[in-house]
Each structure stands twice: as C-alpha cells, then as structure tokens.
C-alpha cells in the first residue's frame, strides 16, 4: 500500500496519462471500427443466408458455416489466425489492421445471429403483403423488414460492441499498443501491478459505462411505438 501511494505521483505523470489515454483511444477505435464493419457485413451474411432457391444452397451453407465456425472459436485463436494468414493477402499489414480484421471476423459472425433474430421477429404477413404488391426481396428487406427489425437488433448489437471493448484486451498478445499492453509495459517499468491494472480497470469501466447507458437509452427509445418516436423528433427543433 505504501508502495502504491509512493508511486502514485510519478505514475500519474503527464507522460503516463497521455500514454494511457492514447491506448484507451486505440482500444475504442479498434472496437468501433471492427464492430461497425462487422455490423454491416453481418447484414450481408444474413441476406445471403436467407436467399431462397436451390441454386443458392452453397451460398446458404457457406454463410451458416462461417457463422457457426467463428462463433465457436476463441477470440484469441482468431487473432493468431489473422496474424499468420494476413501476410498471404496483405503485405506489411499493421497490427491495427490485424486487430480490426480479427474483431470484424468475430463481430460479423456474432452480430449476424442478432440480426437474424431481429428479422425473424417481423411478422411473416408483412413480407406477404409486400410480395402481393410486387415488392422484390431487396425492396421488402430495406423498406419493410429492416426498419421494423432495427429496434430488436440495435440494443443487443450495441451491448455486444460495448462488452467487446474489454475483450479486445486480447490483442495485446500480439503486441498491439492498446490499453492492456500499455498496462503491462508500465508494470514492467516497476510500477505496482495493483496500481497499474487498477487504473487500467478503471479506464475500461469509464469507456464502457457511458456507452452502456447510451445502449439502454437506445433500447427504450426504439421500443416506443413508431408514432411516438416521430412526435418526439418533431418536438425537437
């Protein structure tokens, strides 16, 4: 305890704080980029997976295989897979790119199941009504199904992204200068592990808590009937 108190002023030096802030920013940037791209790709996966017709069977199987495989592999293993396979496609890929690709692969698989659940929650009759009016599949999806599925999709997808902030700590394993990596460095420089990792823990908490609140706000807002949501937007100038 004495050691911690004694180290505290030196530990909270400007240099260290900037370092930690940068690392935290890196963690957020990786998560945001990976999850956002993953979110978009997940839509593509679900759309392809639900393609009707016999000729599309290989496409459907490939999508199912992707989702089932990558949801079941530990994230750390995905990171190593990307680390060692990416040079085959992309020379001199930065660690950041490797981290984002890893997160993206995992997020796509995971979020696609959330999206599929959301789409299946839209009553089949909505799709039938659209069909009888000659809306095609892309039109029905974009105009009728997704707008109604979003309230079901967004809250758990945001929750996934927020909780993933902490899981990105695993990319420190490959030497990515994110929060946990910096923590280890500082610890190696002789700062007390309790002090360093206590601070790191607090920073993780600071990052995810407000986002979590935002997610809860979104959930409440999206759960409101469409008509009330609209009134609310109208009232705002």
């Amino acid at each position: 305890m004495e050691r911690i108190l004694e180290q505290l002023p030196r530990f909270l030096s400007q240099r260290n704080l900037v370092l930690l802030a940068e690392a935290a920013g890196m963690t957020l940037a990786m998560t945001a980029a990976g999850c956002l791209i993953g979110f978009l790709l997940a839509f593509v996966i679900v759309y392809l997976r639900q393609t009707p017709g016999r000729w599309a069977l290989p496409v459907r199987l490939a999508c199912i295989a992707y989702v089932e495989i990558f949801r079941r592999i530990p994230f750390l293993v995905i990171i190593y897979l990307v680390l060692f396979t990416i040079p085959l496609v992309l020379r001199d890929a930065s660690l950041f790119v490797i981290a984002v690709v890893s997160i993206c692969i995992y997020a796509t698989a995971y979020i696609s199941e959330i999206i599929r659940g959301g789409i299946e929650s839209v009553p089949r009759q909505q799709v039938e009504a659209a069909a009888t009016m000659n809306l095609g599949r892309p039109q029905t999806t974009l105009w009728v199904v997704l707008p109604q599925a979003m309230p079901v999709i967004v809250p758990p997808a945001v929750a996934f992204g927020v909780s993933f902030i902490k899981d990105t700590a695993l990319v420190s394993q490959i030497g990515m200068f994110e929060l946990t990596f910096r923590g280890k460095e500082l610890n190696n420089q002789g700062y007390s592990a309790v002090l360093v990792f206590g601070t790191i823990a607090f920073v993780y908490f600071l990052m995810s808590w407000p986002l979590n609140l935002w997610g809860q706000y979104l959930e409440k807002r999206l759960a409101a009937p469409r008509s009330q949501r609209r009134r609310r937007t109208l009232r705002q100038p």
Binding site: Q125, Q126, E128, A129, A130, A131, T132, M133, N134, W143, V144, P147, Q148, R226
Partner: peptide, 20 residues
C-alpha cells in the same frame, strides 16, 4: 406471378399495413 399481382390486389384479415 408479378404480372398477375399487377391485376389483383388482396386485403388481409389482419390488415398487414406496414407498421413502419
């Protein structure tokens, strides 16, 4: 099928208005 749907319209028991 598309052509026939241009000539007929159906109203359902559960209305099926687009909720959004």
């Amino acid at each position: 099928v598309r052509a026939i749907r241009n000539r007929m319209a159906i109203v359902f028991q559960q209305y099926n208005l687009f909720q959004n």
